[in-house]
């Protein structure tokens, strides 16, 4: 359960204040599928960053699963990111020197899981995402669609309750994009809350709920 109230995010550019988010309030229940749309610069990424605890609002409050996360210390926020939130990025953000296997295993490794346990989980994930024969490949040996599948496998390997995807298909061709969207939707079917920023109206229409942002405000929520 995500609960935002009167969120403001202001950037100072020179002497000028840019209101990336102004008075944004919204609630997302567990298992929802939300598409955030809107013109460039309207604050979609800013909103996602705040939901993902990568950024702090200048004012307003944010509750995640009943915890007032906006008041937590940085290290505690990191802890919540680790266990509850999975990120999927437009540019994949895979570690180039690590294999697909190691990229997916990265969150498990960082949280201190033993090698044998990781082996089981990551192997299962590789199979589930159709990457069974790509385990030993490095990112530069994978197609865009495969890279994004590795990134999604990584985002879900810690079994988060929320997936935040910022234009996950923005860097993919049509068919790979649809494929990735279907994977994300499948995860949503399994109960994970999915919040996805997209420019693509076709993709946006697939979501049950669409939020339209304009100039840092929620213009429309349906």
């Amino acid at each position: 359960m995500i609960h935002l109230q009167h969120i403001e995010r202001i950037f100072l550019v020179g002497d000028e204040e840019v209101h990336a988010l102004s008075d944004v309030s919204m609630t997302a229940s567990d298992g929802e599928y939300i598409a955030i749309m809107g013109p460039s610069g309207s604050g979609k990424s800013s909103l996602l960053n705040i939901i993902g605890l990568l950024d702090r609002p200048d004012s307003g409050s944010y509750e995640l699963d009943g915890i007032k996360v906006s008041e937590l210390e940085e290290e505690q926020q990191a802890e919540i990111r680790r266990h509850k939130i999975g990120f999927v990025f437009q540019f994949f953000h895979l570690v180039p020197r690590l294999t697909a296997f190691d990229n997916i295993a990265l969150p498990l490794m960082l949280s201190g899981m033993k090698q044998e346990e990781r082996q089981v989980r990551v192997t299962a994930a590789l199979t589930a995402f159709g990457l069974g024969n790509r385990a030993g490949h490095r990112p530069d040996q994978l197609s865009g669609g495969q890279r994004q599948r590795v990134a999604i496998a990584r985002a879900t390997i810690m079994q988060p309750s929320v997936i935040l995807a910022d234009e996950p298909t923005g860097n993919l061709d049509r068919s790979s994009g649809v494929e990735v969207a279907e994977i994300l939707e499948e995860l949503n079917h399994q109960g994970i809350t999915l919040i996805m920023v997209t420019h693509d109206p076709d993709l946006g229409r697939r979501a049950r709920r669409q939020i339209l942002m304009v100039d840092g405000r929620i213009e429309n929520d349906k």
């Binding site: 802890e79 990111r81 960082l110």
Partner: peptide, 11 residues
């Protein structure tokens, strides 16, 4: 940035 998103703290 990725590591931070994955829940790695500054320390």
């Amino acid at each position: 940035g990725l590591l931070r998103a994955l829940g790695v703290g500054r320390n």
